[in-house]
Simulated scan of single mutants.
Amino acid sequence: MVGSPRPSTDSRPRVWLNLDIAQNGLGTAACGPGVLPAYQLIASNRRLELEITSS
Rank of each mutant, 00 (worst) to 15 (best):
S54G: 01
R47I: 00
S54C: 05
V35R: 02
G27K: 00
R6M: 14
D20K: 06
M1S: 15
V2E: 03
N24K: 14
S8C: 11
E51N: 12
P5S: 03
R47D: 08
M1F: 13
R47M: 07
S44W: 07
V35K: 08
R6T: 15
Q40L: 11
L41R: 11
N45Q: 11
G3K: 07
A30L: 03
L19M: 13
R6W: 13
S44L: 13
D20F: 03
V15G: 00
A30K: 05
R47F: 02
T9M: 05
L19H: 10
P7A: 11
L26G: 08
S11G: 14
L36C: 01
T53R: 14
I52S: 11
G32F: 11
N45I: 06
V35P: 00
R12P: 04
V15Q: 03
L48C: 08
D20V: 08
S8R: 01
Q23V: 04
Q40A: 13
G27Y: 00
P13K: 02
A30T: 01
M1W: 15
E49K: 15
P7Q: 05
L26Y: 10
V35D: 09
S44P: 01
V15E: 09
G32Q: 11
D10K: 05
A43L: 13
L17V: 14
P7F: 00
S8V: 01
G3Y: 01
S54L: 12
S11Y: 15
G27I: 03
S4N: 14
G27N: 02
P7Y: 06
S8N: 07
A38R: 13
S8Y: 09
G25W: 07
L50G: 06
L19T: 07
E51P: 06
G25I: 01
S4K: 09
T9W: 04
S44Y: 09
A22P: 04
G34Q: 10
P7T: 01
L17Q: 10
D10L: 03
Y39Q: 07
V2S: 13
G25R: 02
N18T: 15
D20A: 07
G34A: 06
L48M: 11
S4D: 10
I42V: 02
V35S: 12
P33M: 12
L26V: 06
D20E: 04
T53Q: 04
N18S: 14
S11I: 03
L19Q: 06
M1N: 15
A30V: 02
L26W: 12
D20H: 06
T9G: 08
L19F: 05
Y39H: 11
S8H: 00
G32N: 02
S4W: 05
Y39W: 01
D10G: 07
S4H: 11
G32T: 04
I21K: 12
